[in-house]
Amino acid sequence: MSVSKGLVAVCAHLLSERGVLDLDAPVARYWPEFAASGKADTTVCDLLAHRAGLPAFSADPAGTPLPGLLDGGSRVRALAAMRPVWQPGSAFLYHALTYGDLVGEVVHRVSGRRIGRLFAEQVAGPLGLDLWIGLPRREEHRFARQSAGPPPTAGRIATAVGNLGLAPDHPLGTALRASAAELARFTDALGRREGRSAGIPAAGGIGNARSLSRLYAALVGHVDGVRLLSPGALDLARTPHTDHLPQPAPLHRLDGPDRSRFGLGFELPRPGEPLLGDGSFGHAGAGGRLGMAHPGSELAVGYVCTAMSWEPSAGPDPRWVPWTAAVREAAGIPAPA
């Protein structure tokens, strides 16, 4: 699920550190079609920090049907043509599925490689990871099926969005309904080969906990001689980029101390979700998945599971609370302030 967003972020930062991708540049420098519909000034940083105003692939509240959702070219064309539902850079709100194609297409335009291929060649390969964006057929026999339960119905999604204070025809409300419907369809598709091979970058990563922890370890130190990012590049990736911004109107009234915090592609500690304490970074995924690291202690952790709940939660997955606290204590990492 969304632990995959960390994999995508690593690829973008690799290109940035090599000097071929300017994170402060307009997206349209690398992806000219993206300039349409008021997006000419949207920056790569806006994409990485969930500030782009494009939380869904469709302006229809029903969202994109499954054939289009599993077609990478269709998803990218839809995002290039779409008008943002808030002024990019002025607010932030989680881009559940679109994040991966927004950042992934920039990676593709800069490197000439699709995000799954670049990750396989330049990250997973050198580190020997069992971790893929798009599961190869040869690995199908290793896939452990998840139990997700029935996804939320359209009516339940509409009620949840309405409870946020958004009118049915509000553009943001429409986008959030579409996003939730798209996420439910894709999660269901992960139960079939077509979903696992599609490689939707924001949520389609498949691997194991050992490989996930090994990836994060190579961000904060050397793993068998491989370090993915320099300390300076890592500091840039985990610098807060949303703390100064509200959520888009009218959701800004829901802002509070426990709201999500983002660097450039990674989640940062917050009161309800402290990760590995101050200075740590990582990314959670629906259903309880989690990857994270603490540079000061060079500790990296990966956690995966097969039982997924659709029930919303205001805080971290309850399965995390005991063991993440125990890990911090065992590593001697001070409790977060």
Rank of each mutant, 00 (worst) to 15 (best):
G68E: 05
S90C: 09
L66R: 02
R75D: 06
Y94A: 14
L69V: 02
G72H: 14
R77S: 09
Q87A: 15
G68I: 01
S74I: 04
P88V: 03
T64L: 03
P84K: 04
H95F: 04
D60E: 11
F92I: 15
Q87M: 11
M82T: 14
P88C: 03
M82I: 07
Q87F: 08
F92Y: 15
Y99C: 00
A91K: 08
V76G: 09
A96G: 11
L69H: 03
A59H: 06
A91Q: 07
A80V: 04
P84W: 05
L102Y: 06
T98D: 14
A59E: 07
G73N: 08
L79E: 14
A91E: 06
A81L: 05
Y94D: 13
G89E: 03
D71Y: 09
R75M: 03
V85I: 15
A62K: 02
G100Q: 12
R83Q: 14
S74T: 11
L69A: 05
A91T: 09
G68N: 05
D101N: 02
D101H: 03
D71A: 11
Y94E: 13
G68W: 00
L102Q: 12
A96Y: 11
D101R: 01
A62L: 08
Y99D: 04
Q87D: 12
L79Q: 10
S90Y: 04
V85M: 08
M82P: 05
R83P: 04
G72K: 10
D101M: 05
